[in-house]
Design a protein around this nucleic acid. Sequence first.
RNA 1: GGCCCGUUCGUCUAGCGGCCCAGGACACUGCCCUCUCAAGGCAGAGACCACCGGUUCGAAUCCGGUACGGGCUACCA
Length: 478
Amino acid sequence: MGKRVRFAPSPTGALHIGSVRTMLYNYFLARQTNGTLILRIEDTDQERLVDGAIDSIYDGLHWVGVHWDEGPREGGPHAPYIQSERLPLYQKGAQELVDSGTAYYCFCTKERLEQMRAAQRARGEITRYDRLCRNIPPAEAAERASSEPNHVVRLKVPEEGTIAIDDLVFGHIEWPLETIEDQVLLKSDGFPTYQLAVVIDDHLMGIDPIIRGEDWLPSTPKHLLVYRAFGWDVPPHAHVPNVLGPDGKKLSKRHGATQVGEFQSEGYLPEAMVNFLALIGWSPGTEEEVFSLDDLIQKFRIDQVQKAGGKWDRDRLNYFNGLWIRKLSDDALLARLDPFLPAEWDRRLVRGVVPFIKERMTTLVEAQDLISFLFTDDIVQDPALLVPKKRERMDAITALSRVTVLLRFVDPFIATGIEQAIAAVANELGWTVRDLTIAVRAAVTGRKVGPPLYESIALLGKERALARLEAAQEKLET
RNA sequence: GGCCCGUUCGUCUAGCGGCCCAGGACACUGCCCUCUCAAGGCAGAGACCACCGGUUCGAAUCCGGUACGGGCUACCA
């Protein structure tokens, strides 16, 4: 109970969908246990920083609808929550490890390391640090460290043995220590590497469990070694499987949209995104699959998370989106639609069509096209539709004119009355209702498909509807 | 190359030794409903449970190997 978990993105770009999934799992666990969720920004790579990335992370997470307890802008007992503002902590930690002999200064230049690796490759060996600086006597190393600013601190990895973890998702995993290199912990610019910073922060912030992406699994032994070097207890880890592109590779830009902001502007609902994402890699073990954020908080279990990576499936996302759109009340849908419609479109009229387009949308952006006939008289009446297949042009003119006449007397101008009028014309002329509505729809909406015709005509209003019907007749006469 | 992980319908998945000649969902096909398109309902097709051995009375489920896929292999995270 009362788990402390964290989401720790790097501000190297807009918020990625895969990260959102990891965030969600952390969020579920935090809320479910009445615990604490921490947002921590891991910006230890100063070269890859992207302007506005933190804003984008905040925007994305807010859109998704999750909230957290401690973070850069929220503050908290472990502030600051941005790693670049916690440098002294890491430097002190690195120093401690050097002092205790579990880490050492390395003075190798990047050039030397490159040459070393090239030579190793040429000889067909594994490329890894040759530990040249590992055996410099401590006194000499300390002295050189003060005069040579360009040194780093490396972890002194034991030469033999194994290190293991019991991952909450992947189970028991063991690594032979001889396969692990002497990892850099503190870079020459005084910044920690990820490997040092995560361990220190996760420890200081009391994170339990650590839930992160599967791609961190290979560096876990390095982290374990750092915990060991500090003499700290290792908290439970849970690695969650990757979200893959349709080609089975890690989801990236080349697979299309991958940032939350893009999905937002494409008209996806956060409810759908959450539902869809949560189900990649997790299942409640039942046949239910429609879940709100609150449902997920209730039902999520970390031990039900899958090991295999799951592919991103646009069709399935679309399905969930349509489903969640349909679950919205008409007023709620109107509000969601608002940013996707021209400001000048009369919201009362929009509100009127909402019930009729609700089950015809996959994404919110589709609404505009679906209802534009109500807001612009600039429609294209296609003769091929005005005259349904196997009907004569003259007959179509007659049909449209009869509809025009009967509609004029419909009062009040509502769907049922309009339906009766059209049925009467069909009956009178021996047309099928289907054919008649094809012609009328083309005349009134300029479309082949759309919201229910009678309701659409009612919404349009008698005057505009009649004008369009007359225009269609004229068009056919010329 | 090395280390680690993974492998059930096209896709997301259920399954944790007999209930499975494998269930649900998306997508697909057909039918019904119907003023169009949807939505909805019903039905169907779709997986020799990657492969090969082993354990067991019995394996999708346990063990070993192989294949394939993926991740990592930086003073990136």
